[in-house]
Nucleic acid binder design. Structure first.
Lengths: 275, 275
DNA sequence: GACTTTATGTGCGCTACCGTACCGACTGCG
DNA sequence: CGCAGTCGGTACGGTAGCGCACATAAAGTC
């Protein structure tokens, strides 16, 4: 695979993993666009005209309840793509995608993405088809883990998870976002975030001004975060969805060892016993 | 498409949607097996030797926390397949699949599934490839909605959702399961389930004996359930994942209308204002 | 029937988070 | 500068669900 062709593609991991041939076919049609904060990429039921490959922006997929209250399902950054429903076959999704951190993204006409996705090739490893499905599997894990986290972990821990996942999609250690918005993402009260942020700030892990949170001590966050963060991160690594790995046309087969079964025990209970 | 070939396939919806050609290739390798309650199909990290197409059983995908406490991510019945990671490319998943309602399933060697999935065909509509991806998109919605429900709805409503989703995968109105297990699925205390079941029972919607819940008034449950149930159900219908629709090689294109944006409002708040 | 095991019902104090209200402080704009 | 609008901090009572400890009851075993 030729490396030089990637120079102007920015840092979207899916695009970076394209083969030279795929790149040649797609690159003329990739448009770099700015996605401003709050921009809605799609609403529930909207058919997408473009797929988006974020490079520096972060997009949230969120379900909007009947009451109007939103809840974040997953976040997508330079590791992924907005428009999974295009190649998964549903055409639309019952959620909203909204930009929650300004930045760039490459966009590609839906039809072209689909065409490349459906391109019949003998060996699939390393193709866009493969990469997109693998990313989608990672997305499933992220969504599932959000669900688990919602149920079982304290707000402080959830906030840590959210901050760390966000940091991983950014180049700086600064999040430009209001506490109110974070509350919306996590589906909690704004005051709850204020309190949780306050704790982290007192512990010297954060510094925050209006609409801006600066992470001072990342390891500190990692100490306080629940297991959910690491589960998602590990799975993304395993699926070669992070920039740490550069999948080639002949990457390592995906497999891992087993895991021991545990006794049934509520998580809160376990946390009590630890504390 | 020939209808008669489906007679002995039972009622798995994915298998039912196979084209005649696909059926001819796969049917000799489909084995009908009994999946006993509690059977673990896979553990986190396990590579699957078979994919399973449930017909009368229900399998839960659940994440097992470090503490040992499980939490249901999604449930799979005659509408789906166990072994999504096979064709999504990850090989394994960081969760456990366990049978939570005895019954039958067809199993198919992993390699054969993959072979058929990767079969290069010009037109994709109606193929196994298509159906599997569409099912996976439905799965994503189910998982996402579970997440939302975990965060925002009362236990009573969540229980209704869980009961209704389960009923949709069964032929009878009887669930053979202990309250303890339901609690594990929903990630709550056993006593919480006892209380919620008690309410529904007093309302005359249920009847329950040891390890067995009989639903007497399904419409009653539907009145009490939160929006999450309908969202999942509607999405599955739209994706032609329910037996109501019989996708052919030229099914209707998938699209739908828009949805109005709402004011931000916490769901609890909304529920308060209604009550 | 006697005994064990497992499932369900109930009560009680506790706490994380909720809803509400209000106040101060920062920021952008004229 | 002054003002308006937004954002963040604090306080307070309320509650859904928690952990814990038992009591009861149904099914299985011998």
């Amino acid at each position: 695979m030729i490396e030089s062709h990637k120079l102007n593609l920015g840092q979207n991991h899916i695009l970076d993993s394209l083969s030279a041939a795929e790149y040649q076919r797609l690159s003329p049609h990739l448009e770099l666009v700015v996605l401003p904060l709050g921009e809605i990429i799609y609403e529930p039921g909207d058919e997408l005209r473009y797929a988006y490959f974020p490079t520096t922006c972060i997009v949230s997929m969120l379900y909007v309840m009947e009451s109007g209250a939103p809840a974040e399902i997953a976040m997508v950054g330079n590791d992924g793509i907005i428009g999974v429903s295009l190649f998964m076959g549903g055409g639309t999704m019952p959620n909203r995608a909204v930009v929650r951190s300004v930045g760039y993204a490459y966009r590609l006409r839906a039809q072209l993405l689909l065409q490349e996705f459906n391109r019949a090739g003998g060996v699939r490893n390393g193709t866009l088809h493969d990469m997109l499905l693998r990313y989608t599997q990672g997305l499933i894990t992220q969504i599932a883990q959000t669900s688990v986290c919602n149920r079982h972990h304290f707000l402080d821990q959830q906030l840590c998870r959210w901050l760390l996942l966000s940091l991983d999609l950014l180049t700086s250690n600064e999040l430009i976002i209001t506490q109110e918005l974070i509350a919306n993402m996590l589906g909690v009260r704004r005051e709850g975030i204020t309190e949780a942020v306050g704790k982290l700030q007192k512990a010297g892990l954060l510094e925050c001004r209006r609409g801006r949170i600066t992470v001072l001590d990342r390891p500190g966050l990692e100490e306080r975060v629940c297991e959910c963060y690491q589960v998602v991160k590990t799975e993304f690594d395993r699926l070669h969805l992070t920039s740490r790995y550069t999948p080639s046309t002949s990457y390592m087969p995906l497999h891992s060892g087993g895991l021991v079964r545990n006794e049934s025990l509520s998580s809160r209970q376990a946390q009590m016993k630890q504390g």
